[in-house]
Computed example of a mutant assay.
Amino acid sequence: MRILFVAAVVAFLAACTSQSEGAPPVIVPKGPGEQAETMDPGDVGTDRWVAPGEADLKYVASMIVHHRQALEMSSLAPDRASNETVKGLASRIYDTQGPEIDAMEQWQRQFAEKAPAHGHDGTLPHVDHDSMPGMATPEQLAALKAARGADFDRLFLQLMIAHHEGAVKMAVDLLSTGTDVRVEEMANDVVASQSDEIARMKAIVIP
């Protein structure tokens, strides 16, 4: 009886230690109208792991390209803009979207590591530059690079407002079609942060 009691205590303590030291549970979304499932972190990468859907993969691949253009546009402001508010906003966009690209690329790497075990080749969808809403054309980018002072400020705001509105549309579309919780969190961040920046840019008056 004493041996059984000791064994039970050891098992209980082991379970408690495992729970306290483990990562938080993973929420796995299901289909429309179905309740999400809570998965132990140890099950990620096993047969219980649900691979991201095509909508998640396409969104992340597309948003990385979309963000990179925002970085390219924002990097022009320090030497070309004359309005301090425009300069500050461009700096904020650059500082925010750079780390967001890093987070999305990390998600892609984690997907590629898990995908082969589940019958997916780990390849990412092709991104059609022209199909993404809000992307500036090569001609518009050239005009922005050539502009200085107030002309740059006006064109930057015009192009970046359209760019942000396109990103918000992409994020909203993902929220109605995606299945990966982490991608949905990233999309929600885009909607919140870029909607706020759209309002800020529309409030700037360039004489």
Rank of each mutant, 00 (worst) to 15 (best):
A171Y: 02
Q69P: 09
D95K: 05
H163E: 11
L57H: 01
A115F: 04
D95Y: 03
A36E: 02
V183H: 04
M1K: 15
I204F: 05
W49D: 14
A77V: 01
L13V: 00
K30Q: 11
V10R: 08
A103R: 15
A192G: 10
I101Y: 12
V26F: 00
L71M: 14
D79K: 04
G149F: 07
V127N: 12
V86D: 13
P116W: 06
M73Y: 06
G119M: 01
Q19T: 12
D40T: 10
H118E: 06
L57E: 07
D173L: 00
P133D: 10
P207G: 05
Q140V: 00
T17H: 10
V191G: 12
A90L: 03
A70D: 15
A11M: 10
F5Y: 09
R200H: 03
G119Q: 01
M170C: 13
V44Y: 00
Q158P: 00
V50K: 14
P41T: 07
G134A: 05
D102E: 13
E165C: 09
M132W: 03
D47E: 11
E197S: 09
S82K: 06
G31V: 08
V86H: 13
Y59F: 12
A23C: 05
T177A: 05
R92D: 15
P78M: 07
P25L: 07
I206D: 13
P24I: 00
A90V: 04
H163K: 15
D121N: 03
A142I: 10
Q140S: 01
S176V: 13
K169P: 00
D189W: 04
K169E: 14
E197K: 06
K58L: 09
S176R: 08
S82H: 05
A23S: 06
S75H: 07
E21M: 13
A103D: 03
T137C: 08
L155A: 07
D56F: 02
I93E: 08
R200E: 14
A167W: 06
K202A: 08
D79H: 15
V172Q: 12
L89G: 13
V10K: 11
G122F: 01
V181S: 11
D56I: 11
D173G: 00
P41K: 14
E100G: 05
V44M: 09
L124C: 05
P207A: 11
G53M: 08
D56P: 00
G53Y: 05
L13D: 03
Q108R: 15
V65P: 03
M39C: 05
K30V: 06
L76P: 02
V191E: 07
E21F: 08
A146C: 10
A117V: 09
E84N: 03
A15W: 01
M63C: 11
Q106F: 02
L76Y: 02
A61G: 10
L155D: 07
I64V: 04
I204E: 07
A187K: 14
D79M: 12
R109Y: 04
T123C: 06
Q69S: 04
L155M: 10
D102P: 04
A7V: 13
H163S: 10
